[in-house]
Nucleic acid binder design. Structure first.
Lengths: 373, 373
DNA sequence: TTGAAAGCGTTACCAC
DNA sequence: GTGGTAACGCTTTCAA
């Protein structure tokens, strides 16, 4: 550690610009060994070599028109010659903004999050913003991020996916002057893009009801969870609403909750199918879970949709390949839209539609069919 | 813009620490409006309030043992009181390292890249490094990144996925003292993790040969492409080698190249199937392309694997659901391993296995079968 | 149109 | 143990 700092400091010092690299042996040939200073040019080097002040170089860098064409081209030439590129860090510190957007997302590993991320990346592409990814995979990490990221210098703004925010957290971000945009979660004081999960749950139930099913079960996340996710609960809510409205009773044993995981869903389904009066249809709170449901049914020797109809939620990438009937939500678009929202605020523009509810769509494929009598 | 800078500047000035936020109207309620200065505490504030020097605060911050317990706790208390968090930017500038890892990847949108990214995120999780994502979606962008990222301050090191590097580029990164780790592409002077694409191509061909196929076609990427990708070409190479070794001739018309895209693969396959002597089996250079092959075959009214056997490469997430026979490469693991490689170098350790070739595996599912006579 | 100098928020060195 | 101060590499006044 000592040694490392020493080396780092060497790199930083701008005294002598000679650089000597050697491969000491096979074992450290991937390390950067330097005898003297590294040759990374700074604005001062450019200024000196071009015979101007650093201010002028900075002006050239920022396309400030108050520089004579002659001076500008001379400075530009020196920059090119020295392969100069400004320090992002120093610019950030000086300007108070970094041109970086942070994305705070739980379970980056889940297909739906990846899909949203794609949308974000696409929206950011045309902007000059970099993307820093903060993957939340424990409640502790969520807390830690919300502590340490509350500074203007990690990113100019953050896109937060699926994580509900407390009022005081929002207030603190605002206090730190950090713009936020929410995806898949709402907060009055923030721009966001969401879907109507309750309506989605209703749509799923209605589809099953329309097919003649009456013994319909639910497999979803824990209603209470450490992150405060409500998607699964809301979908269940809408689902139950629709059933109740149709006069269909749902015994408590027909509602299974567990971690958002294919294998857990598999296990829950196995329990469901072992019930004396087993359901003829299952609504899974997500496609990932629906996949587990399908596997469990097949493992139990049931055919789908003959013996069991299954409907999921999200329409993730694999859904069409599995032939999964599902409620489609525009994942990619939510990412793209969320990023645009943040970009709007960052560019001092006001989002035209700061609170957007994306449309849902029933996609009927091959895992649901009319109830066989 | 003027206005924005003004605001930014206000935020930066550390004079008066009072802060007043107001929602001027609905239309700018998402913007941060401040009358005076923002209250973001700096190390100087802490020092002043705790009645110590900034040096001492810095020592507390960095767990330097040369601070008396009494002073330390006092400083800590003030930090807590003022909700202080150090500036990542300033630390980076001062220390010469940012604790950030950059990932330069082409087509972040492709499933295989996403899978590798998962592995990277997982490896980085336990480290204290942040992840900055640089998505390359054009040769121009590749060039731009390789220009502007050649600084020590965007990231402490980079993980480069699938992008072949020129010797001079490697030299320039080294000159800038920026450690690199490569995934899915090799370079003698750099640590990397790859697979043996030629062997993979051979395995695919052999599987088809073993099933009795003799009229075997290939669908892959353009051999020459703007990024210099060689995976598809190498797989084709191994494929042809195996066929030749088995005494099986492959007419040029059986080799189709196009963009790495499902729809393009679809089109190429349609051409293939329209041939007077149409192939009984197709090797697609990637699963994504295999998907297109399958769609084309189905569109042409052929059954798989009855009329046509299809084998892919990669084993992406959807492959099992489609029942796709494929050559599996450990995508996730390549990401995890690549990140570890970089972390090793960053921590001044030498990677135990700097050049690793990950194993390939034939996964037989439902898209290949013995040739029907 | 330009140069000099004062920030930006840290770390690290040098005294005491 | 601790305080001051010079970096780090830029931007942005303020004069000239």
């Amino acid at each position: 550690m000592k040694r490392f700092q020493y080396r780092t400091k060497l790199i930083a010092k701008p005294l002598d610009k000679t650089c000597a690299i050697r491969y000491t042996s096979f074992w450290n040939r991937f390390h950067i060994e330097e005898d003297r200073e590294t040759a990374m040019a700074t604005i001062a080097d450019i200024a000196a070599k071009a015979g101007v002040g650093v201010g002028t170089v900075s002006r050239v860098l920022n396309n400030n028109p108050a520089v004579s064409e002659k001076t500008r081209s001379r400075v530009l030439a020196v920059m090119h010659e020295l392969d100069y590129h400004p320090s992002h860090l120093a610019q950030g510190l000086s300007r108070g903004r970094t041109f970086t957007v942070g994305v705070i997302a739980p379970f980056f590993t889940h297909p739906s999050v990846v899909e949203r991320l794609r949308g974000i990346v696409e929206s950011l592409r045309v902007s000059q913003y970099d993307l820093v990814l903060f993957n939340v995979d424990s409640p502790a990490q969520r807390a830690e991020y919300f502590q340490t990221l509350m500074r203007r210098d990690r990113a100019d703004g953050f896109i937060i996916i699926s994580l509900p925010m407390q009022d005081d957290e929002v207030a603190r971000f605002r206090h730190a002057a950090i713009p936020l945009a929410l995806i898949d979660v709402a907060h009055t004081d923030l721009p966001y893009v969401i879907i109507d999960n309750i309506a989605g749950g209703r749509m799923a139930a209605q589809h099953l009801l329309d097919l003649g099913h009456r013994r319909i079960a639910f497999v979803g996340d824990h209603h209470r969870n450490a992150y405060g996710f409500t998607a699964s609960r809301d979908r269940c809510q809408g689902f139950l609403d629709a059933l109740t409205a149709a006069g269909v009773a749902t015994p408590a044993t027909y509602r299974k909750e567990g971690q958002h995981d294919r294998h857990i869903a598999h296990r829950l389904t196995t329990e469901l199918l072992a019930l004396p009066e087993r359901p003829t249809a299952i609504f899974a709170a997500s496609d990932t879970q629906a996949l587990g449901v399908i596997e469990a049914a097949q493992a139990a020797g049931l055919t789908i949709p003959g013996d069991l109809s299954v409907i999921g939620f999200d329409d993730i990438e694999v859904a069409p390949y599995v032939g999964l009937t599902t409620i489609r939500q525009p994942l990619y678009q939510s990412g793209a839209r969320g990023a645009t929202l943040l970009l709007d605020v960052l560019s001092d523009a006001t989002p035209d539609v700061p609170h957007e509810v994306l449309p849902l769509e029933l996609v009927v494929r091959r895992t649901t069919s009319p109830l066989a009598h």
